[in-house]
Design a protein around this nucleic acid. Sequence first.
DNA 1: GTGAACTGACTTACGAGTAAGTTACCCGAG
DNA 2: CTCGGGTAACTTACTCGTAAGTCAGTTCAC
Lengths: 198, 198
Amino acid sequence: MAGNTGTKGVPREEREQQILDVAVEEFGRRAYANASMTRIAEAAGISKPLIYSYFDSKDGLFLACLHRAGANLVEQVEAAQTGPMLSRALDTLAAIVRTLEPRRYDWAVLYDATLPEGTAVHDTAMQYRKKLAALGAAGVTELLAGKANPDDASLLTHLWLHSVSAAVGWWLEHPEETAESITARVMRLASLLAESAR
Amino acid sequence: MAGNTGTKGVPREEREQQILDVAVEEFGRRAYANASMTRIAEAAGISKPLIYSYFDSKDGLFLACLHRAGANLVEQVEAAQTGPMLSRALDTLAAIVRTLEPRRYDWAVLYDATLPEGTAVHDTAMQYRKKLAALGAAGVTELLAGKANPDDASLLTHLWLHSVSAAVGWWLEHPEETAESITARVMRLASLLAESAR
DNA sequence: GTGAACTGACTTACGAGTAAGTTACCCGAG
DNA sequence: CTCGGGTAACTTACTCGTAAGTCAGTTCAC
């Protein structure tokens, strides 16, 4: 009889994507440490055991979110490393923001500050962060062109990555903004600052 | 007889400071959500109930850390808002870094991303953040001098605060650096960037 | 009828918070 | 100076709630 049990006819692949979408939002909003599997299940309209049967564990679910977000971002950012140095940084930011458009919380998942050290989750996030940092560092090196020591370059790379985080964070607080409007704002600010520094 | 019980003769005031120092480190490293009262007690070489008798709760302990960090930072940053616009940003950064020198994790506590919304802990952190943001916003407004719309200014303020966070974060990964060396690095980078933008 | 999609109800671990008691320091009375 | 008693500084050993993870199934599509 119509208890709540039994299949609903949703194929695994589709259900997995749906769970991932919900999970990214929960992980992005509350961070890994505060995220609750029960809440994810409720938000997805299914029960907890189904999630476990598809993703094994909280870590497994987070890893799946991470891979989707990380691989996507690395790919898009790599593709943006072509133009002349002057505009490359802006191109990269545009690529990131465009990639994040459909799922803005992907960035928060990748840069979650609550991942316990020494776990697979932490290590995997670190790998993706390192890849993005390496891409940023390449640009920074070229920009500085030997005019600064390696530690200064490392610091600038760090500043660059965090500026992107800041822009994405601001975007999350201003949902009505689009990828284009954000990029445009940053471009305006960049030229205003350059002018002020004259 | 000499069980582990009974007073050790440490006066409350002194013990409280010691607990706070340990707690800031734990909260700063692991973030509020992952921090454990048991671990703080162990690291401080005392038992959990003593912490509770002095600070009431995990929230109470965190609040105490917050007030020490927040009040200190707000005061020092306010004092740095005097020079001409050109150097004010650098002065502010220098003030922050100098203030953080004895307890670098204060910044991480103030900007902990895992504070549950709607709690006293979250609200208090927000108040201090807002104060610092307001100081930053004042500088940004003066710098832009009406040449940008309010949303652009808001974004720039956000970028500024996150850049400070980034610098502090880099510092935590390079413990051998001093307040002065960090400030010097940022100054060098700022002038290099200004030159590149020419 | 068989396997994939699903669930209600459980167990378990861990961390916040507490009850009840122990010891050492301090200070006033003799 | 010294001998109690009161209180501040402590601890061991608990309770209790919450969230991860699991068991034993039920139902539907093919």
